[in-house]
Amino acid sequence: MSTIKELYAYRQMIFSLVKKDLRGRYKGSVLGFMWTFINPLLQLIVYSIVFGHFLTAVNETVENYSLHLFVALIPWIFFSSSITIGAASIVAQKELIKKIYFPRMVIPISYVTSCFVNMLLCFIVIFAVIFVMGVGVNFLAVLTLPIIMIVEYIFALGMSLLTSAITVYFRDLEHILSIVAMAWMYLTPVVYSKSVVPEKYRTLFNLNPMTHIIDCYRTVLYYKQVPDLSNLLMAAGLGVFFLIFGTLVFNKLQKHFAEEL
């Protein structure tokens, strides 16, 4: 409880770190802030070619593969960058941590938030694509989108608290996580549809909160339906669990940050 109160007092710091991160990220590159949009678009092109034209076996039933992929890929990029690059966030800010006091959680929170803002900006592109393709949207379904985003944010934050704190003591984690993130993507229905997962593996897939989260995005934006709330509720439960667990671990480990860094 006191953690929340203190974080609230430091809200301005979170705000200015997010601003600094968003402004500073592409500093010095020619295209600058445009990379926020170009990067996911290029990834989309690669995956669309590979899975839409060459490895089509798993996606035969999908009508508009690019859009099917796009609405899942953007939320996935948010999640994976939260855990991989987010893991390094504490180590990256070591100068600040060694020299001055502030609630340490501010750093992963502002990092995940800036990734989140990036995702929101990419959603502008998603809606533009939907509009250009003439697919259209279901307004009632789109209203549930913020809820899905919040659930994903909670889960991503929990994971990033966990990974960023452990990375301080165990630097290999940062590199291990990039592989884990890749494997996790293929174990989540991002490049394929949930329906192609064999029945016997379904339970396993359902334990992965990202399965539900990605599925919800797709239901809303691709199938234009209101998502199944029970799925979302399960994801939310797992998200909250990880957030609490991440917070506890983080609070325990943060006491020795200044010495380990």
């Binding site: 007092a9 430091y10 301005q12 710091m13 200015s16 502030f102």
Partner: peptide, 9 residues
């Protein structure tokens, strides 16, 4: 930025 690190709103 700097003042926010001291916890000012």
């Amino acid at each position: 930025t700097n003042a926010s690190i001291f916890g000012l709103t």
